[in-house]
């Protein structure tokens, strides 16, 4: 599990990998939030390409970052969600409730 970052013109790309559950989400969250407060991006792009498992903690992670981005007037996007993981995303309805845009892989 390694999280990689790429910052381009105030767009913060976060490449997540491995499994997102309550256990792993704690460290991932701290890493991302540190970057957000350092860089104050206009847009946060969470790339789920290499996620192999996620439960509702993966949704909590998105919602929490979305709230943090809103507090600095930024946007959040989730991209490349693999089909297996998209099932949880769809169930959560985050695409409808928030201003989070979700792209399937």
């Amino acid at each position: 599990m390694k999280t990689e970052f790429d910052n381009k013109n105030k767009f913060l790309f976060v490449y997540l990998s491995g499994e997102i559950d309550h256990h792993s989400a704690i460290d991932i969250r701290m890493e991302i939030d540190k970057k957000i407060s350092q860089l104050k991006p206009k847009k946060l792009i969470l790339d789920y390409s290499d996620i192999t498992f996620m439960d509702s903690s993966g949704i909590g992670l998105i919602m929490g970052r979305h709230r943090l981005m809103q507090s600095i007037a930024g946007e959040t996007e989730v991209t490349n969600v693999p089909p297996k993981m998209y099932k949880v995303v769809k169930l959560s309805g985050i695409e409808k409730i928030g201003k989070v845009s979700v792209k399937q892989r």
Partner: peptide, 15 residues
């Protein structure tokens, strides 16, 4: 609340 989405039971029910 906080980092919890409130979706655990919904996931169990639908899966």
């Amino acid at each position: 609340g906080g980092e919890r989405a409130g979706l655990g039971f919904a996931v169990m029910e639908s899966f």
